[in-house]
Design a protein around this nucleic acid. Structure first.
Lengths: 247, 247
DNA sequence: CAGTGGTCTAGACCACGCC
DNA sequence: GCGTGGTCTAGACCACTGC
């Protein structure tokens, strides 16, 4: 693994990726990384570049530093990854060095029953799109998402396109339908994974899971998405970073 | 407002504070800040120092940058969340029309074992304060918090004071010890409530619960708090609102 | 084209932890 | 004392935006 100045990717990003791989394969929690000066010599980059890479890894929660002592591998299961703002499963898994996959299990259009009509603030009987997706990391099933969309806003959305292209749902909303989200409200709780989902997620029946409900609003404050999510608690941790913006 | 190299505070922090004040008093959302090179000349510091200050402000969500255009003031009200979640339990319960209560079950000072020394980024054997609290709503037990603090930073914290006065932990940190939080990282997962906690929370053994880990950093990026929280999933839902600061 | 932020270098000194 | 991460400088070139 070498760092090349081929202009395609910044040096510090290449360095980040290199170190990520090492963290995943060669190191375990609390192992000491080479010092900044060693890394600098090893890859023939300046110390600032090394520090830029390490800063990013620190923000991602993959390493921690101790003044006068060194840089160490963080315990991945304790404090993984990034800020939740993206609510992006994909990004978080990549940050953790795992390979994410999303498989569409169901795609259908149907009339809304009372519950979903209420959730999407439309009339009972109006058409909705249901999208059921299984998310995995390194081939391990992690999460089942059931997403409900008002058909009127996303007519023409095709399952194929979602499957083929590597874009987040939010990217599709914005790029293909001009629906940019303004607010997303999420509610997290713990529960028992349903028997049906437990089979798909390959866990014992009755296992605890992280349950999430999300309602997303567009710029006009209309509801554009309602999602129910069921997650294996041993495979996924939901991270949030609060910042004190007080000046 | 000048930047001095008097060794007390790093230049980039002084610069950060200076810019913060300007953002608060002189600028409004989406105003353009002076360019990095202008700031550099104005305060007689290097561009790297300017960028270090701006990077921090960007992480805090106070500014945003656009390549080729400039640096701008972010919309403060759009920012992720601010307030210490100490409030969230109390506030949320009040909002739901329930009467919240907090009872201190344990208050002790002890040497840190390896796990907590790591979590607080202190040395094994350094003293830590352990605070165990039960939170209830309308006399129904809801949540058990176990909070670990570095004794060196909170020497003199008394359980009595916490019990008597109605202040959040964060208020005590700030008002009595001058420790203002800058970032709080929370990790949420689902799990089974321990048998011991199940008795206190009055649920069946093996019941699922919402588990939370929180690490709080002060303005100097030192860890001031580590908390483990175990919550009855039938009594509490964790709500988050994401706002799109789209630029 | 000029001006902006993004990346990078090769040095330097300081503050901290440990022996 | 020595090695560590933390801060800082004075340059340089690149990539993007807008005129």
């Amino acid at each position: 693994m070498t760092i090349k100045y081929d202009k395609k990717e910044p040096l510090y990003e290449q360095l980040m990726d290199t170190i990520k791989v090492k963290i995943k394969n060669d190191y375990k929690a609390d192992d000491k990384l080479p010092s900044e000066r060693e890394i600098m010599r090893k890859y023939s980059v300046s110390r600032n570049t090394v520090r830029q890479a390490l800063n990013e890894l620190e923000i991602l929660g993959l390493i921690y530093r101790q003044h006068g002592k060194g840089t160490f591998v963080a315990n991945a299961t304790d404090n993984p990854a990034t800020l939740g703002n993206e609510h992006s499963f994909t990004k978080q898994m990549i940050a953790l060095g795992r390979k994410p996959e999303t498989k569409i299990m169901e795609y259908s259009v149907r009339p809304a029953n009372k519950y979903f009509a209420n959730k999407l603030n439309i009339n009972e009987g109006d058409r909705i799109i249901k999208l059921k997706r299984l998310r995995s990391a390194d081939k391990v099933p992690v999460m089942i998402d059931r997403t409900y969309l008002p058909f009127s806003k996303f007519e023409g959305l095709s399952a194929v396109e979602l499957e083929v292209k590597h874009r987040s749902l939010y990217a599709v909303f914005a790029e293909d339908f001009g629906e940019e989200f303004r607010i997303a409200d999420e509610a997290l709780s713990a529960g028992r994974i349903s028997d049906k989902d437990a089979d798909v997620l390959q866990v014992a029946q009755g296992s605890p899971g992280l349950m999430l409900k999300r309602t997303t609003f567009n710029q006009q404050n209309e509801i554009i998405e309602f999602t129910l999510s069921s997650t294996r608690s041993d495979q996924y941790v939901y991270n949030i970073r609060y910042k004190n913006t007080k000046i």
